[in-house]
Amino acid sequence: MSKSAIFKQAWALAAMGAVRFGGKKSEYFVESLKIVYAKDKIYVLLVQTSRNRPAWCAKITGLSKRYGLQREFLGDYGLGHWDLTDGIYNYGRGKGDSHYIIVKDGNAQVTYDDDVKLVFA
């Protein structure tokens, strides 16, 4: 998203804040800019899910002697929708289905478990 588009959205959000809560648009601009800029850095992961194969997603935080990779599972198990910030993630559907992505600046790149292990080695 261009800087111009970010500023336009921030001013629009600030105007809505001023109408709803009172005051001037300029009083709401800084916080509105932070909100719009943060939204631009989020990657939305959608995984098709079913009753028999619920979707799951976990952030990789390091290496584990027992499991190979240390993971922190994200909430909404089975829902198939996650807003991801920068980091390395493991996701899939049911058992045996596992994929890895690296999220940076709102963009995702597919990677493999061996490459993820090298990042934390």
Rank of each mutant, 00 (worst) to 15 (best):
M1S: 08
M1R: 12
M1N: 11
S2V: 01
S2T: 09
S4W: 00
S4L: 00
S4G: 01
A5M: 01
I6T: 13
Q9P: 11
W11M: 15
L13R: 14
L13S: 07
A15P: 12
A15F: 15
A15M: 14
G17L: 02
V19R: 00
R20W: 07
R20Q: 10
R20H: 07
F21R: 05
G23L: 00
G23R: 00
G23T: 02
K24D: 14
K25H: 13
S26A: 05
S26H: 03
S26C: 03
S26F: 06
Y28K: 10
F29T: 14
F29M: 15
F29R: 15
V30G: 07
S32C: 11
I35S: 07
I35N: 08
Y37V: 04
Y37N: 05
A38E: 07
A38N: 05
K39S: 02
D40L: 10
D40F: 02
D40S: 12
D40M: 10
I42N: 05
V44K: 10
L45Q: 07
L45K: 01
L46D: 02
L46H: 08
V47P: 01
V47W: 01
V47L: 12
V47E: 12
Q48N: 13
S50V: 03
N52F: 03
A55Q: 14
W56S: 04
C57E: 11
C57P: 09
I60Q: 01
I60K: 00
T61D: 13
G62S: 04
G62N: 12
L63S: 09
L63V: 13
L63R: 14
L63N: 09
K65Q: 12
Y67G: 05
Y67K: 15
Y67V: 02
G68W: 03
G68C: 03
L69K: 08
R71V: 07
R71P: 02
R71D: 06
R71M: 03
F73E: 04
L74W: 04
G75T: 06
Y77L: 11
G78I: 15
G78H: 11
G78K: 09
L79N: 02
L79Y: 02
G80P: 01
G80N: 04
W82R: 00
W82N: 02
D83S: 10
L84S: 08
L84I: 04
T85W: 07
T85M: 05
I88P: 08
N90M: 14
N90K: 12
N90Q: 14
Y91D: 07
G92F: 15
G92K: 14
R93T: 10
R93H: 09
G94M: 13
K95Y: 12
G96Q: 13
D97P: 06
D97G: 08
D97V: 09
H99M: 10
Y100F: 15
I101C: 06
V103H: 01
D105N: 06
G106W: 05
N107W: 03
N107L: 07
N107C: 03
T111I: 09
D115E: 02
L118V: 15
V119W: 08
F120T: 13
F120V: 10
